[in-house]
Amino acid sequence: MVDPNCSKPIIYDTAQSKWCNINHPELLETNNGLLPVASSGGLLCFRSFSGEFFISNPVSGSHRKLPHVDIEDTVHAIAMSSSSLSSYKLILVHGDPSSLTVKTFDSTLDHWTVSMLHRKTKFQQLALPESGDEYGDETLYYLSKAGDVVATDMQRSPSKQFSSVVITEKNGNEVLYFLSQSGRVVGCNLSEGFWYEYPKILPPFFEHSLDLVECRGEMLVVVMSELLESASLRVWRFSEEKGLWVQVGAIPPSMSHEFYGKKADINCVGHGNLIMVCVSSVSCGFNCEVLCNLEENSWVELPECFISGKPKEFVSAFSFEPRLEACV
């Protein structure tokens, strides 16, 4: 769990349904300004303010600094994937839509590789008619019923600013997904070298906050929206057969009612059948964590975590499986 200050690590153990402490990793004690940005298996990836990357096993305390990589333009996604306890990849996507660049650090090769992605139109006929179709250029503004001007490119928690997931498809292709600033899901087929956009899930004036997760080997989108003086939190997957987004889960209205009017941001992480949703609002001082079990269609608000008698607030979470033997 990540708090606004990225201080002493706290873990929510889903197997025991309780909060746990973890020894302060040596990495965080000796390096100031590190922020967790990705995870896979038993490893976490941290990024420094200067753009350096560190891989850490938070259980064993082992860590390493990756070789420096130059990135001179906008970073869109940072993701990790691992095929075993002894190998992992860190994947960065950056650049403008005309020439997306992928830089990958493969631990088995111990160096960075570079590849380019070309654009491919995959769902254009389903997309909403909007001006500025290139992602990142379509920030929309609308007037809410309360008279507030709201932008669709909501600022994310720094730890989730480059939120993305990597999925290995049945045909073996590795696909990375991330969110554009306008709220579109962008898919990057790393195996075949192209990228594409999905249609929007909801009209822009309905979307309030959204995030990507990986669950059960597929990419899902969690969306919090407000309509008719109520708030909803729903989970969507894209059906290739139907060519549209299909709802696969929704929080009970009695639980989501407290989110209405908070202008909250959601930051989510998936693992197996579980989705952790961190709901936080700086302007309202609101914070809570909700755990969804998609298989059982159950939603539970987690009890507050108290440190030294004070409730702890979390803005995001990362999933990892504690393994002493996971190599960095």
Rank of each mutant, 00 (worst) to 15 (best):
V277D: 08
A231R: 13
E207T: 14
C305P: 04
L302P: 03
L202I: 09
Y198C: 07
Y177H: 10
N173S: 13
C6T: 15
N57R: 03
P4L: 00
V277E: 07
G183A: 10
L66V: 03
S107C: 06
H208Q: 13
V186W: 02
E240Y: 04
P4Q: 02
S232A: 12
H94N: 08
S230W: 04
C305R: 03
P252L: 11
C215K: 01
Y135T: 14
S107Y: 05
M154K: 15
S99V: 05
S239C: 03
V277H: 08
E304P: 08
G147P: 03
R184W: 12
P199C: 07
G285A: 00
T121K: 13
K103M: 09
G217P: 00
G270R: 07
G187H: 11
D13Y: 01
Y260E: 02
N287I: 09
P4I: 00
E192T: 14
V315L: 06
Y196T: 05
S230G: 06
S283T: 03
P25A: 05
S164K: 12
S107W: 05
G95V: 08
S280I: 11
P311D: 05
V149S: 14
V277N: 09
V175M: 00
K103D: 14
I266Q: 06
S17Y: 09
A127Y: 12
S131P: 10
L100H: 00
C188F: 11
L44N: 14
E240N: 06
K18N: 15
S308L: 05
W245A: 03
A15I: 10
V221C: 10
N267I: 13
E29N: 15
V246D: 04
E296W: 05
S163E: 10
V185P: 09
C292E: 13
S60Y: 07
A250F: 10
D211T: 10
L176C: 11
